[in-house]
């Protein structure tokens, strides 16, 4: 069990570092979102699951699962809002597109 947890934690940190590398290397904003989404999805899942298998306390497990759930639900929403606002700012000349908030 400990070995599984270590592997997950190490893989999670590796994915976080790769995502950061992508955030520094990729050329424009719309590509950098993909790199940030690596940290948001795989880094979070692997690190939190790695912590999850370390403990037997039911309350701690519930809290870790709740954190994972919140991150999975709110992460895509924030990323979508960010990219949507950026794309609106780009075509700012069309005034009616600003009122269609999805």
């Amino acid at each position: 069990m400990i070995v599984i947890s270590w592997v997950m934690l190490l893989l999670g940190s590796a994915f976080c570092l790769i995502g950061t590398l992508g955030l520094m290397r990729l050329p424009d904003f719309y590509s950098r979102v993909h790199a940030a989404s690596i940290i948001d999805s795989m880094g979070t899942i692997l690190v939190l699951l790695g912590l999850l298998v370390q403990t037997q306390d039911i309350l701690v497990i519930a809290k870790l699962i709740l954190i994972l759930l919140f991150m999975m639900l709110t992460g895509p929403t924030a990323v979508h809002a960010l990219a949507h606002t950026a794309s609106l700012k780009e075509k700012d000349s069309e005034p009616d597109s600003a009122s269609q908030l999805s």
Binding site: H34, S37, I38, S41, T77, V79, H80, S102
Partner: peptide, 13 residues
């Protein structure tokens, strides 16, 4: 949401 959660694709609009 699933598209955005998968790295490599995200919804813009």
């Amino acid at each position: 949401n699933c598209i955005t959660l998968t790295p490599g694709t995200y919804t813009l609009n």
